[in-house]
């Protein structure tokens, strides 16, 4: 299809804002994510009319209303399915799926699995606040064991799912993690996800100020961040700590990471190595949480392959020929 392109290269982040009043709770991490996405859009020079934000249900799902692009606020958990249909019908569109831990990993877990495995060319941004916010604070599939909530007054007894671990297990070819408050890192991560052709999955640790405040403080708190996080970069050693004095390496003879001083052999991050990405995604205290692009290993995207299989068919086959295919017979009066 041909569309008249208005050059949006000079657009500022605010130009990606719609005229709608943003209605998240004051202090919600979603504001920071909105700001980061708009900044990434501006830096990428995204063409507004060719960009579509699709969401399911939940706090995160309000996102499309606040963007000046095309937007579709759909039903709970189903955004990946709708986004797949959009890309199948028009692969030219730049489609983002905005989801949350309940939307994307509970009610929509099945769709998330399949959209990642199929490798549909989408940016899938999962806001993980480890709680159901819009329904007033129930525990979610990423809530840690023992989370007290209206539906688990004695503490939840379920084991949480790791969003990035799930994505890797589903066969995602781009998996990254960032934090709502780490603006520069988040913008850079979003831009990387956009550069990736195929399904790119970004987990953003996002603070729910009302129902799960400070749940990531042990990772994101100013005092602890340097020791509690490791910012991974392709081709660079896996170092962390205030003065990068700690390194991660493989425990000799075991498929397991260990923390060692920098002067030992630090593991070099290889974002095309899926088993390494799985190890990084699974890191829990006392290990640092891995941030950045854990895995990136592109392959042809689903809709590309669908159209490649169709062999550039223009869809102009003769209807009369179709209806007259196989055996026909003539009746004369």
């Amino acid at each position: 299809m041909t569309v008249t392109t208005i050059t949006d290269a000079q657009l500022a982040p605010k130009d990606y804002s719609s005229d709608q009043e943003v209605r998240w709770c004051p202090g919600c991490g979603d504001y920071a994510i909105l700001k980061a996405v708009q900044k990434a859009c501006a830096e990428l020079g995204l063409v507004r009319e060719r960009t579509v934000f699709v969401s399911g249900i939940g706090c995160a799902a309000r996102f499309p209303y606040y963007m000046s692009t095309y937007g579709f606020h759909t039903v709970h958990g189903r955004a990946p399915a709708i986004a797949t249909g959009i890309k199948l019908a028009n692969p030219e569109l730049d489609v983002w799926v905005m989801t949350g831990d309940g939307d994307g990993l509970s009610i929509g877990g099945n769709h998330m699995l399949h959209v990642l495995r199929r490798n549909v060319d989408l940016q899938i941004i999962l806001f993980n606040n480890e709680i159901y916010g819009l329904t007033k604070g129930q525990y979610s599939p990423t809530s840690r064991r023992g989370t007290r909530s209206p539906s688990t007054p004695l503490g939840s007894i379920e084991y949480p799912v790791s969003a990035c671990g799930f994505a890797l297990g589903a066969g995602a070819r781009f998996v990254a993690r960032s934090v709502d408050t780490m603006q520069a890192h988040l913008v850079a991560t979003l831009k990387r996800s956009h550069a990736h052709r195929g399904a790119s999955f970004v987990e953003i640790l996002q603070n729910c100020v009302v129902f799960n405040d400070a749940v990531f403080d042990h990772i994101t708190g100013k005092e602890v961040a340097a020791d509690a996080q490791i910012l991974v970069e392709h081709g660079k050693p896996l170092l962390f700590g205030k003065n990068k004095e700690k390194a991660l390496r493989l425990k000799p003879g075991k498929l397991e990471l260990e923390i060692v001083p920098t002067d030992s052999d630090a593991l070099i991050h290889d974002e095309t190595n899926r088993p390494l990405a799985q190890l990084l995604a699974a890191l829990e205290p006392p290990f640092p949480a891995a941030m950045g692009v854990l895995y990136c290993n592109p392959a042809a995207s689903y809709e590309q392959e669908v159209y490649a299989q169709a062999g550039g068919s223009k869809g102009t086959g003769e209807l009369d020929a179709l209806l007259n295919s196989e055996r026909t017979w003539e009746v004369t009066s």
């Binding site: 009319e49 499309p64 209303y65 095309y70």
Partner: peptide, 14 residues
């Protein structure tokens, strides 16, 4: 059709 300039809009179940 998304892709049409200046008709960017948002729809949903609300």
């Amino acid at each position: 059709k998304p892709g049409t300039p200046q008709l960017e809009h948002r729809i949903g179940g609300l």
